[in-house]
Computed example of a mutant assay.
Amino acid sequence: MARILLAEDDASMRQFLAAALTRAGHAVEAVEDGEKAYAVVREGRHDLLLADIVMPGMDGIELARRAAEVAPTLKIMFITGFAAIAMKHRYHVGPRAQILSKPFHLRDLVDQVDRLLSA
């Protein structure tokens, strides 16, 4: 079981993803924006940050960049409909950052999360 921090501004998507990851055996803490996620990251209790890129306030790219500074072992995965933007900024948050493009099947999400966590 991994501890996952999910940052997603769309409430229904956030609940849907959190439920799927919880069913897969992970402990999920879900927040609605980058500022809240960053406050949680600084507490250092998660294994993975799963972040949408487009969020109000602090976007997922900035969140991941800041998270990598304060929690260098935190694994990062973007969920986005804007994969090209994520690829462009990927190395600002570390080459380990993974990208899952929307739309995706929940099985793909769980599989990618499990692969990233086991790497």
Rank of each mutant, 00 (worst) to 15 (best):
63 L>S: 07
63 L>Y: 07
86 A>H: 04
62 E>T: 10
78 F>Q: 05
81 G>W: 05
82 F>Q: 15
61 I>W: 03
36 K>V: 15
48 L>E: 05
83 A>Y: 08
78 F>N: 05
68 A>K: 13
74 L>T: 00
86 A>K: 03
93 V>A: 10
72 P>R: 02
75 K>W: 02
64 A>Q: 00
92 H>L: 11
96 R>S: 13
70 V>T: 13
76 I>Y: 00
69 E>A: 11
64 A>M: 02
87 M>C: 12
37 A>C: 01
80 T>R: 02
61 I>F: 01
49 L>N: 04
45 R>N: 12
59 D>M: 06
49 L>T: 01
77 M>E: 00
63 L>I: 03
65 R>K: 14
82 F>E: 14
33 D>Q: 09
93 V>L: 13
61 I>L: 06
37 A>F: 01
70 V>A: 08
83 A>D: 12
94 G>N: 06
35 E>R: 15
58 M>L: 15
52 D>F: 04
78 F>I: 04
83 A>W: 04
89 H>R: 12
88 K>S: 14
67 A>C: 03
59 D>Q: 00
94 G>Q: 01
68 A>C: 12
42 R>S: 06
52 D>I: 08
37 A>H: 00
71 A>H: 01
37 A>V: 05
86 A>S: 09
67 A>K: 01
89 H>T: 09
45 R>T: 15
36 K>Q: 15
91 Y>E: 15
32 E>F: 10
89 H>N: 13
56 P>N: 10
73 T>H: 10
39 A>F: 11
88 K>R: 14
85 I>Q: 10
81 G>E: 03
51 A>L: 10
55 M>R: 02
43 E>I: 03
34 G>L: 05
36 K>T: 15
33 D>F: 09
49 L>F: 05
60 G>S: 01
81 G>N: 05
81 G>A: 14
80 T>A: 02
82 F>M: 12
32 E>T: 13
59 D>V: 09
53 I>C: 10
33 D>I: 07
48 L>I: 06
82 F>A: 15
54 V>P: 09
65 R>W: 11
70 V>H: 05
47 D>G: 11
47 D>R: 01
95 P>Q: 10
66 R>T: 07
52 D>W: 01
65 R>S: 07
34 G>C: 07
60 G>W: 04
56 P>C: 06
51 A>E: 07
84 A>P: 14
44 G>Q: 00
60 G>Q: 03
84 A>D: 13
50 L>N: 02
